[in-house]
Nucleic acid binder design. Structure first.
Lengths: 272, 272
DNA sequence: TTATGTTCTTCTCATAGCGAGATTTACTCA
DNA sequence: TGAGTAAATCTCGCTATGAGAAGAACATAA
């Protein structure tokens, strides 16, 4: 057996300039989701230059590596803030959830060079339009239904001509992660304001899952899971609804996991 | 508002040598888990040089970026194969499950330079000792119980002096992912050989979850979940057990998700 | 060979959770 | 004032679960 040179690679870098090594760029892309007009929307930016000029893409950019080195979540927050003007932590609406989604490093995903992208997933309550107040940024919340993300288009990059690079795949993975997260975590409250009603929470589930839920059973489940929501004692003022009594107000509880979980009704197809 | 220069970064790279940009190195680290002697074990290598000389570390190495560019899963498979001599896909034991765990890019996680590591998680049936037959590789399967991974030590890098870099944190995340995956996927069968018994499968769950399960209820659940296991019709020959009848043999079914799921008994602490 | 202990496998039973639907109540709108 | 809508609560049958028990098959030691 010949000695394995891989073990010495780290020591290599202590003596050699890393610029001499393989040049790999690291970027951060953000799948930022929110509920607008009862539908699930994603924050997209329009590309102005080749490649994929004129197409939508996820907001993202390069990680500051050495000069002003930043952690990966900080890079995601910075990209999100630069695009929307709302900081995720401690901003006007500081209830933004951010988690790592996955890393995409297929050679050829960027036609110009080797780019490895760390994708993040963000859940936000309704935020202002990014273009309003900043005419220099060509960004918008786009309903995911309008993107035509069929399963076939998501799996084969290039089949859909709506999103640049492999961002259709990243968005698809983000949507599936979001759908799964709502099942066993209370993160649906991250899409709501500080105080919300059970029907509003149900609207979040219906928008993300894309199917209607049984109102009675949903109400029973939400209130029976310990720590999911806690009552504020108040009642919603009559909003622009179409009738019915005023629903009660709740805020997010202290649970980190839902037990028992809220399972999607139509998971039968995904099992096999 | 001033125009945002970030949007032009990709076009920047089309014209400028990427070596002039921030030098960030990309590595893959693998958390390879298996069951040995009834306990959960992880594949570790011992470092020979500074920093962290003499300490255990996860197997890993640099991603081939431009010359012989490889995808991230391929890099993980290559690292695993170089360390164990068993290829994950189509090897002697080709039933290795591999999935991406997460990406760790904290500045300062490597004291020499900026290194971003994409971690992968692997489930393997019992594999031969990596040191047997290859005296040049200082690697071994180490029981995770012997590493003293307390919750406090996992969260604060440097508290535990057993694993190099932030590998204690990565391993901790991998263990939690493995424990969760066994709840709602049939991946416990990836720890077993082609044919296995229900008690063997239960031993996998008990080793990963670290708690004993009710044998009768486990047996009922496994057989009632559609597609989890399918009978081979055979019966185990009398192994080195301590009595009892010969258990029946099964193989992995075609389910991709367990419905209903197999939930851990003691999740009560983690809920809040 | 016999006795004892172990473990696989299949039960029972009480309780909890769930899907589907009905009912009551409170509100909006014409 | 009447019709329509939706929140909130309830019933009912079915399924899933946890705990325990029991029988059968096997190993080991006396």
């Amino acid at each position: 057996m010949t000695p394995d040179p891989r073990r010495d690679e780290r020591e290599f870098l202590a003596n050699y300039d890393p610029r001499d090594y393989d040049p790999v760029a690291v970027t951060v892309d953000v799948v930022a989701l929110t509920i607008r007009d009862g539908g699930l929307s994603v924050l997209l930016v329009r590309r102005g230059n080749a490649p994929y000029a004129g197409m939508w893409a996820l907001p993202g950019g390069f990680v500051r590596g050495v000069r002003d080195a930043e952690d990966l979540p900080d890079a995601a927050v910075r990209e999100l803030a630069e695009e929307t003007g709302v900081s995720a932590k401690g901003g006007v609406l500081g209830r933004v959830h951010l988690e790592q989604l996955g890393t995409y490093g297929d050679p050829g995903r960027d036609p110009r060079m080797r780019v490895i992208s760390v994708a993040y997933l963000a859940f936000a309550p309704e935020l202002p339009d990014p273009e309003a107040g900043s005419d220099a940024v060509d960004a918008a919340w786009v309903p995911v239904d309008a993107l035509g993300l069929t399963e076939a288009a998501e799996q084969r990059p290039g089949t859909t001509r709506r999103l640049a690079f492999d961002h259709a795949r990243i968005l698809s993975d983000g949507l599936e992660r979001a759908r799964a997260k709502l099942e066993y975590t209370p993160l649906a409250t991250a899409f709501c304001a500080g105080e919300f009603t059970v029907p509003e929470l149900r609207a979040v589930y219906e928008a993300v899952w894309g199917e209607e839920l049984h109102a009675g059973n949903f109400h029973r489940k939400v209130l029976s899971v310990p720590g999911f929501v806690e009552s504020t004692g108040g009642t919603s003022d009559k909003g622009g609804r179409r009738g019915g009594p005023r629903p009660k107000l709740y805020r997010a509880g202290d649970a980190r996991l839902l037990h028992p979980a809220l399972l999607r009704p139509s998971r039968e197809e995904e099992i096999r």
